[in-house]
Design a protein around this nucleic acid. Structure first.
Lengths: 153, 153
DNA sequence: ATGTTATTGGGACCGATTCTCAAAACCGAC
DNA sequence: GTCGGTTTTGAGAATCGGTCCCAATAACAT
């Protein structure tokens, strides 16, 4: 609890939920996976692999990539296709709620934003409709805003 | 006009517009670039590099990649970050109008869809607002629906 | 035609991600 | 608590879209 690492953005019950999601797919919630999850949770914004390693240098690259994959497959985290050189990862919406992204076209960083429930419902309904017309069964949507972040203006 | 290649989805005036966009950046509208543009226009959906080469085998891979880059930088085409193994390309919105994408999580194909002006304006306004609050200067947005396409149900 | 600049092709190269495999950590049963 | 079976780890090799290089060629202007 009061060790050197800032840690602690996730409650113990959230960790139990994550462990259950992993167990459902036959995976364990090991120390390395827990540290990885805590880095992602503590950042408050989607991170790249270098970001993760910078925050937790004790982790090895191959294990982090493998665990990002396991966590994604178990529904704990989400991989974002931002178009930059590195993929970004963040906790899945089942853990942190539905939201969208501001992607800086200059430096590539990604920030989370939420829209009002009213707009969200409206968009959802409109998408359902056009998807249905195309014989497409939607499972979710991504709404990204591209532009210049405050640091890059 | 009635040669073997299906061609002809673009009017001559659109080609002149494209030539002008290229010229503005000091580039020429060569035969290879024109064939590339015609493949993208004729498909009616965003294509990957293998798609392009399959449609026009006479083009060489390195030139296609280079020209996709030149055309993107000149504002003629847009590169989509769909998350699959290959990037997808399509004519830019200045040429084909604003629209969104249905991305199949199974086979990776991408289809275009349009939303009503009313929804579009509402989304735009909502995004402007949240972006502004974050000190972010938006230049555009991407709204992708992920799900299972008609062929993959 | 002739010079000048942009473009092409194909192969070498790069770099993010994935794969391999032997060693180490886990976990339940005895 | 330790033995056996299973999962995970770490370090490096391998993969594979995509980019870069450079000599040969096409476009354009004069």
């Amino acid at each position: 609890m009061s060790d050197g690492t800032a840690g602690g953005t996730l409650t113990e019950s959230t960790h139990r939920e994550i462990a259950a999601m992993l167990a459902r797919a036959g995976n364990r919630y090991t120390g390395g996976r827990r540290r990885l999850v805590e880095v992602l949770a503590g950042a408050g914004q989607p991170l790249t692999l270098p970001d993760v390693l910078a925050a937790e240098p004790a982790l090895s690259q191959s294990s982090v990539y493998r665990n990002l994959d396991v966590l994604e497959r178990s529904g704990v985290i989400t991989r974002l296709a931002t178009g930059g050189e590195f993929a970004h990862f963040e906790l899945s919406e089942t853990l942190v709620g539905h939201h969208h992204h501001l992607i800086c076209v200059d430096c590539g960083t990604v920030a989370d934003v939420e829209l009002s429930d009213r707009v969200e419902r409206l968009v959802d309904a409109a998408l359902e409709e056009v998807a249905h017309e195309a014989g497409f069964a939607p499972v979710g949507h991504n709404l990204d805003v591209h532009g210049h972040c405050a640091d890059c203006r």
